[in-house]
Each structure stands twice: as C-alpha cells, then as structure tokens.
Amino acid sequence: MNKLEQAIRKTTGEGVYTSSFFSNTESNGIEEIAKMETSFLASKEELRKKKIIYPGMKNSKLYNSFRELRSTITGEKSNNIVMITALDVKSGTSFFARNLASAIAFDTSKTALLVDCNNGHSEVGDTFNVSGSNGVSDYVSDTKIMIEDIIYESGVKRLRVIPFGKIDSQVDEQVNHPRFQQLLNEIKNKYQDRNVILDAPPVLNSADARILLNLCDQVVVVVPYGSVSKNKIEEAITLIGRDKLAGVVFNDYLN
C-alpha cells in the first residue's frame, strides 16, 4: 500500500471505520463487529508476500496449527492481552504474533488488535504498509495524538494493527509511560470480544518486555529450533511466573 492509498484510507474510510469502531459501546458485540467496516482487503498474493495465513492456503498444516493455537491460547476469553515474546531475537515472534492475531480475526465473533511493542525490531509497520505512520511511540510522546489516530486496518477482516511508530527511541521506557498503560486499558476494555496481541521484545534481555509482563494477561513464549537451552527456558518461566504463562510454542522453522 502506497502513501496515496493510506491518504484515501484516512480521509474516506476513517470516518466509517471510526464511527463503527468507537461508537455505541452499549450495542451487541457481534453486531458491532459485523458493522466493523474494512475499506480494503489484502489479496492472497499480498498475504503470501507478508507471510500471513489465510483460509484455503497451500500450507494447510500451518493454517491449522494457528487455528488450534488460537483456541488453546484465547479459548472463550475476550478482552484479553496476550504478549508474544521469546528468549532471544530472531525467534519468529513477529511472524507468530501477526498470524495468531489473524487466526483470531478469522473467528467472526472476535476482533484482534496487533500492537507492535518490539522496539528495535518492529515489523508491523513494514508488514502492513504503515511504516511511516504514527504508532505507539508517537502516541506516548505526543498527547495530541488520539488512540484512533494510531489504529490501522490490516487488510484482514476484523484485524487492526498499531505499529510502533515513527519515533525510534533509544530508550526502553516507552511502555513504562502512563499513556501507554492508558492506551492498553482503552483498547482492551472499550470493546467486547477484543483480543489484543502484543508483539514484544525478548523477555530475558529487555526492560520493555518485563514491564509488559505486568500489563498483559497471558504470555506465550516462542521457542525456535535449536536456539534455546533448558536453563534459559527455566529462567524465563521464573521471570514470567506460572500464572501468566499460557505456554510455549515450538517454532520449527527453516530459513
């Protein structure tokens, strides 16, 4: 999606989008979701390019894996913040987070919001063609920016995304800001049947990740092939705590 498309989305679609997404909180959730307008839908080719799963894709095994994981992780829960993290960089966290969010969005009774909190390795902006737009960091640092200004369509029905933003801060304190906590509260509680997926940095070597642990409801750890030892896993479990740990997902990838 180019800049022109983004401009059209903001001017034409945003009104519909905003009204449908942030108005009438009293109404029925399913109806609300059904009303959720999508100005554009990504083609299969685009989804393949972005490595996003879709019904009827060739690699049905992967598609089914995500659907099963969706059921296991979110179940019947709603208004849930799931933090996707790993023990080290390049573990496939972003890939897992966007596809888990997509899998949740495939359920017509639910919506998903993918929030990129992965400072330094943010991928959401690039993947969903909103890399130059405002995001989490901009919202935190600029009080003039409203929540609705940083939520974007993904091209997948019922899936919205919030990129990390333009300000590439060198300081790991974005998520510690009261405005970030306010952001999470709002996006979590304002709508029914909303699942928030946080694309988080590695849990063992990031202060942001540790702060996010306190703000989320569930944590999923991605363990890539041949990179993680028993000691590291045990260290991570201790850090996360048994209550919040939903479980680990083995990423049997081959690059």
């Binding site: 490595k51 690699n59 994981l69 596809n99 740990l245 680990v248 997902v249 990423n251 990838y253």
Partner: peptide, 11 residues
C-alpha cells in the same frame, strides 16, 4: 512446561 503446539515455516 506447558507446550501449546508448534508452527512450521510459512513457505
């Protein structure tokens, strides 16, 4: 350790 499942390469 609760193991939720595994994912493979997209392509």
């Amino acid at each position: 350790l609760p193991v939720l499942g595994s994912i493979s390469t997209y392509r």
